[in-house]
């Protein structure tokens, strides 16, 4: 069971965070939050999202699972504006989710959850390097790198006390190093890994809206980005597998 009311903008933000990686997902309803965890089709990127009941104007739910067509939801939510109240109502028997806003009433057929990939279990990995940076600065760096290359190195230089991003094109090179002054926080442990900008570009658009993004890094290890949504009443984590260059 799920019946809830929320600012449409907040819900859209949550759906966009998922849509950056997958077109469909299993959404779990719990008594005090909505939770989802999904992996992209190539098993390279994962998203996990929590949206607490406190993010809603009204929320009542029991434990359950529903299959969501994320791409369709994104299109529908695109028509709503900030401040519009959105009411979600799960019609269990009909396997439909009703979205009501401003007199519109959408009834969306749910996907059979069993046809959607199971929730991936997050890998246990140690990522000792940590930097906290504004989402817009992170997104700008990703966009700058994408101009000249299809991959980007993210790293921490403990001697220079910087978090850096570096990209190498066929002929061009770009580097951005941010010192402690420009960062919210830094845990200066040496780290460097290479990532595909294909994935980062989509994640970057979502992260751009976050005040602070926590970046966790290792050497030739995945990267984890964690940030708040819904004014601190929800949290998103992205995990992206690295590229490892052959010697």
């Amino acid at each position: 069971m799920l019946k809830a009311t929320i600012d449409a903008e907040i819900f859209r933000e949550s759906i966009d965070a998922i849509a950056a990686l997958v077109t469909e997902c299993r959404l779990h309803t719990e008594e005090d939050m909505l939770v989802t965890r999904a992996v992209d089709t190539a098993n390279v990127a994962m998203v996990s999202l929590e949206l607490k009941s406190t993010a809603f104007d009204a929320y009542s739910a029991t434990a359950g699972e529903l299959g969501l067509d994320i791409a369709k939801m994104k299109n529908i939510l695109g028509m709503m504006g900030r401040g519009d109240a959105l009411t979600l109502n799960l019609l269990d028997e009909e396997r439909k989710l009703e979205l009501a806003f401003k007199g519109y009433k959408y009834s969306i057929t749910l996907l059979d959850a069993s046809t959607i990939r199971k929730d991936p279990s997050p890998p246990t990995i140690e990522l000792p390097g940590k930097a906290v940076i504004s989402g817009s600065a992170l997104n700008n760096a990703i966009k700058a790198a994408a101009v000249i290359s299809d991959k980007i190195a993210l790293g921490i230089d403990p001697d220079a006390m910087t978090f850096y991003m570096e990209a190498e094109g066929d002929t061009d090179h770009i580097k951005l190093a941010l010192g402690e002054d420009e960062l919210v926080a830094l845990n200066p442990v040496g780290a460097r890994s290479l990532f595909s900008l294909d994935y980062l570009k989509d994640m970057g658009k979502v992260m751009a809206k976050a005040d602070e993004v926590e970046v966790n890094l290792g050497v030739d290890h995945p990267v984890k980005f964690a940030f708040d949504i819904a004014d601190g009443n929800g949290r998103v984590e992205y995990l992206l597998a690295p590229r490892i260059e052959a010697d």
């Binding site: 992996v39 190539a42 098993n43 390279v44 994962m46 991936p120 890998p123 991959k151 290479l194 595909s196 995945p222 995990l239 597998a241 690295p242 590229r243 490892i244 260059e245 052959a246």
Partner: peptide, 9 residues
């Protein structure tokens, strides 16, 4: 020889 790693197969 793929560079891109994945979490699992």
């Amino acid at each position: 020889t793929k560079e891109q790693q994945s979490f699992f197969i």
